[in-house]
Design a protein around this nucleic acid. Structure first.
Lengths: 153, 153
DNA sequence: CGTCGATATATGCATATGCATCTAAATCGG
DNA sequence: CCGATTTAGATGCATATGCATATATCGACG
């Protein structure tokens, strides 16, 4: 039944491990750069996500879907960012429990600064590793994976 | 100059973001499973890496390449695993500074138990998302990426 | 309308993590 | 062979994180 000596389960496991290790390797390099001296990875991730938000405002729980952090940790991370003047909070108008977030001027500025450097670093890592066609395929496959996994329920 | 309206730098950034988000999405699901009730992700990662080590023994600093943890954190993580009786330490015979690690019986047992469940979960996530051919391609691309990134210096 | 379960966020507390630094051993240059 | 530099790990200390839980609002239902 095996198509070529490898079970589907094993293939999935190996694929995941490879994806995970590649992520670790790239992340290690990125974190070593000077960009992450000012904000930690997860903090930057929050700033980045907010910067990409069309309306400018984003709910805390929606933010939590993007970041690999528990709800409580995200709550405190945002608290720190607020204390540093990088994000602003506002009670959600349509839901008394909710909190809306957006970048302050300073936060947007910082995100852009770090983002530029970040993007350069990424390009320096992926560029020599994969052709443009390969990057597109990698992007397509990971998008498909993310979509499928996130779609459950 | 742009081949189809997208700069290489932008493509690299988008590819990396997609890879990263996919990793977060999958990891979130995996962590939610009962497998990670007994050991944290990084702890399992150490057990797994040790289980795959041909000689059985692995240097602490080599281990550190696999895991996204600082040296000091890994040192303490291993200390905890040792206290729990899951790994054993031994001074490196050829280097008085070094430490060698291997799984204990209990550690190997636990790794296998969790590993089985882990692999099932992974298969349940990747299987419906990507065809076998796509998984192979994803594996190939991430291996290439990891190799290229890790190879620097 | 009042009660009940679900959802969004915050907080107390124990633990994990990272940075800077320390110690010891290896390596290099004379 | 000796001193200087580098490398492997461990440790003090401040901070970040997660789990369990608290608080408040929401939504459904009788």
């Amino acid at each position: 039944m095996a198509t070529d000596g490898e079970s589907p389960v094993r293939l999935a496991a190996e694929t995941w491990e490879s994806l995970f290790r590649a992520q670790v390797a790239v992340m290690r390099k990125l974190q070593a750069g000077p960009a992450f001296r000012k904000v930690a990875l997860n903090e930057y991730d929050v700033l980045f996500t907010l910067s990409r938000c069309p309306s400018g405002w984003l709910r805390l729980n929606e933010l939590n879907d993007n970041v690999l952090l528990s709800q409580s940790s995200l709550s405190r991370l945002v608290e720190r960012l607020e204390k540093r003047g990088l994000v602003a909070r506002m009670p959600a108008p349509d839901d008394g429990r909710g909190v809306l977030l957006k970048l302050t001027e300073a936060g947007a500025e910082l995100q852009k600064d770090i983002g530029r450097e970040h993007v350069r670093d990424i390009s320096g890592l992926l560029g020599p590793a994969l052709t443009a066609a390969e990057q597109k395929e990698l992007k397509r496959l990971t998008e498909k994976l993310r979509h499928s996994v996130g779609a459950r329920h």
